[in-house]
């Protein structure tokens, strides 16, 4: 039984007469202790998918499909249950800890408050738990740092503090929305390694949203690539990186600057720009930019085609790995 199961999730924003479909039918499943990376560019729907799992959208957003987390129906949850669910079953870390932490309270108190609210302990016990968490996320001189305000910490330390806050009530699922994007390179790798270690030791299920393939490879067991609100390719990390099947995934991997060190060479770029969600083409959303587009691509969205065990792509041209080998 997967701990997260999302079926045909759709999220619409804007007026009903002119909706913008940010998520257009996403299926996801996540086992206990597994890390899934949602990889995509801005506007691909990766963050919206993540926020749906916490029901963080404004009231005007319309969500369809079904979401089961730890055997709870997230969409049917009344508000009181939702408050208990957030933080103790599922918690989230964000790109900018400076915005996610309250600037006028000491960081230690913010963590203690969450523990008191969710577990009904005394404030003193909450602070003790906060200290334990600060040690766990390896903040140097943790006793002193608990009394810091967020602005007194460096970027890397604030991100560690936010991870501590997210773990305060022993969640089973951690949602990470680009948590290392704003960090410097030498700090980013430290935070990635910390998240990997915590995930392993606490048996967390993690959904990690990122636009950086390198970051996804460092943390994920599986990678799901999103484009225009749909998962267009998904599979075990190594399969997606080494044998990408969808032209978009192939293009993303080929356009990385580290693939061609030859001076004066040009990068293999994907032409065009990501589509406007309000005016999506009828067929495959990637068709206008695709180098190997067929007429059929413009008519209907291809269903997921299985390439190998657990690896699929939404592309007409995708073939099972076995068949591909046979034709070579």
């Amino acid at each position: 039984m997967p701990i997260v199961e999302v079926k045909n999730l759709t999220v619409d924003f804007g007026p009903k007469s002119k909706p913008v479909r940010a998520v257009a039918g996403v299926d996801l499943h996540l086992a206990k202790g597994e890390t899934l990376a949602l990889l995509g560019e801005s506007g691909s729907g990766k963050s919206v998918t993540l926020r749906s799992l916490m029901r963080l959208h404004p009231k005007s957003a319309r969500t369809g499909g079904s979401m089961q987390v730890d055997e709870r129906d997230v969409l049917a949850m009344p508000y009181g249950d939702l408050a208990r669910y957030r933080g103790s079953i599922v918690s989230m870390i964000f790109q900018d800890p400076g915005l996610a932490l309250d600037p006028v309270y000491r960081v230690g108190d913010q963590i203690a408050e969450a523990v008191v609210r969710h577990e009904g302990t005394s404030f003193k016990q909450g602070r003790a738990r906060a200290l334990e968490l600060f040690e766990r996320v390896r903040i140097p001189s943790p006793e002193r740092r608990l009394d810091n305000y967020p602005h007194e910490m460096s970027g890397g330390m604030r991100q560690r503090a936010m991870i501590a806050l997210a773990l305060a009530c022993n969640p089973k699922v951690l949602l990470a929305d680009e948590p290392t994007t704003a960090l410097d390179a030498t700090v980013q790798i430290q935070v990635l390694l910390l998240l990997r270690e915590l995930q392993r030791e606490l048996g967390l299920a993690v959904i990690f949203v990122t636009h950086d393939i390198g970051v996804a490879v460092e943390v994920a067991d599986r990678i799901a690539v999103m484009y225009a609100g749909k998962i267009i390719e998904e599979g075990p990390c190594a399969d997606v990186i080494r044998a990408p099947s969808h032209p978009y995934t192939k293009g993303l991997l080929a356009s990385r600057a580290d693939h061609s060190f030859e001076k004066g060479a040009r990068l293999t770029a994907i032409p065009g720009t990501p589509p406007d969600l309000a005016t999506l083409p009828p067929g495959c959303a990637f068709a206008p930019r695709c180098a190997v587009v067929l007429d059929a691509c413009r008519n209907s969205t291809p269903p997921p085609a299985l390439i190998s065990r657990h690896h699929f792509a939404r592309c007409i041209r995708s073939e099972p790995a076995a068949a591909r080998q046979a034709t070579v």
């Binding site: 560019e41 801005s42 636009h211 393939i213 293009g251 993303l252 356009s255 990385r256 600057a257 990068l267 293999t268 770029a269 994907i270 032409p271 720009t273 990501p274 930019r289």
Partner: peptide
């Protein structure tokens, strides 16, 4: 910029 646009 998005990665696919960055290369362009």
């Amino acid at each position: 910029l998005d990665k696919s646009v960055e290369a362009q």
